[in-house]
Design a protein around this nucleic acid. Structure first.
Lengths: 141, 141
DNA sequence: TCTAAGGTTTACGTTTACGTAAAGGTTATA
DNA sequence: TATAACCTTTACGTAAACGTAAACCTTAGA
C-alpha cells in the first residue's frame, strides 16, 4: 500500500496537497470544521476529511467565512432526522443558491469590465509607439 | 435640482444607498480607494466616486481584499502613459481574468453540490413523514 | 438661542484567520 | 545513541476591515 493509494493522510501530507500549512488545518479543526481520527495523539485524515478540506478552501476562494463554510459542510451532510434542522437547511441552501447566482452576475460584469480595461491599456500602448494592433494590421496588408 | 437628480452625494447618502456605514466609506478613503472632493472639510462624492464604491463592494462580494480592489480600480482607469505600468496592468488583468474563470468553475460546482444537498434534505424529510415528493407523486397518480 | 441632525478627526477595541515561537514527545536511521 | 524529521499543545503576535466612542464643529429650524 504505497503513498498514492493510501486512504489516510498525515497533517503535512494534506497540507502539502492543498498548499496550506499544518497550522491552518489545525485551526480549522479548532473551529469545528474538521474532526480527524487519532493514532495516539497524531491526527489521521481520511478521504472524507480531505474532501471536507477541499470544500472549505473552495468556500474561502469564493469569499465565505469559516463559519459560513461550516454551515455549508453541515448542509452537505444532513446527518440528522431533526425536522426543524432539515427545514432550516433547506432555507439556508436556497439562500446560498441565490447568493451564488448573484456572484455569477458579479463575475460576468467584472469579466466584461476587465476586457474593456484591457482594450484601453492596449489602445494607450498603441497610441504611444505605433504598436501593431488588430485595427492597425487591418490597414497594413 | 432635487435629491434624485443630484450628481453629488454626502457621505451618509452614499452609505445608505449601498448599505454600508459612513465609517466604512471613510476607511476606504484612508486606504486610498476613494478621494472625494471637499467643501470645507465635508466630503462630497461625485458619480465617479459612487461608481468606485460600487466596484469596491463588488470586489468584496467576490472575496477580494481592499488592496486587490485598489488594483482593480487602478486597472479600470489607466490614467498613465507609463509603458511599464500599462504592461503591468495587462499582465494583472490577465491574471484576474484567469482567477475569475476559476471562480466561475467553483461556483458552478458549489451550485451542483447545493442542489444535491437539497435533494438529500428533501429525501430525509420525505422518509420521515411520508411527504409528497416528485418521486412519490410518480406513484401516487 | 438652543437643540437636533448632520459632519469632522483621533484613537482605542474587536473579530477573523491564521503566523510564529516555545517546549516537548516519538520514531527511523546512521 | 544521537540526530533528524515528524508530530503535539499552548500561547502570544499580527494584518485586515472595520466598530465604537469621545470631543468637537456647523448649520437648519422651533
Amino acid at each position: 500500500m504505497n503513498h498514492l493509494e493510501s486512504e489516510t493522510y498525515s497533517i503535512s501530507e494534506l497540507a502539502k496537497a492543498y498548499c496550506v500549512t499544518p497550522r491552518t488545518i489545525r485551526f480549522y479543526e479548532d473551529k469545528g470544521l474538521l474532526n480527524p481520527q487519532r493514532d495516539g495523539n497524531r491526527r489521521i485524515y481520511s478521504n472524507k476529511d480531505r474532501v471536507t478540506l477541499k470544500l472549505i478552501l473552495r468556500g474561502k476562494r469564493l469569499g465565505f467565512s469559516l463559519d459560513e463554510c461550516l454551515e455549508l459542510i453541515n448542509m452537505y451532510d444532513p446527518a440528522t432526522d431533526n425536522r426543524k434542522q432539515l427545514q432550516h437547511f433547506l432555507v439556508a441552501i436556497d439562500q446560498r443558491q441565490i447568493q451564488l447566482a448573484h456572484q455569477l452576475d458579479d463575475i460576468k460584469v467584472m469579466q466584461e469590465e476587465l476586457s474593456a480595461a484591457k482594450a484601453r491599456c492596449l489602445a494607450a500602448l498603441a497610441k504611444q509607439q505605433g504598436i501593431i494592433t488588430p485595427s492597425s494590421t487591418h490597414h497594413n496588408k
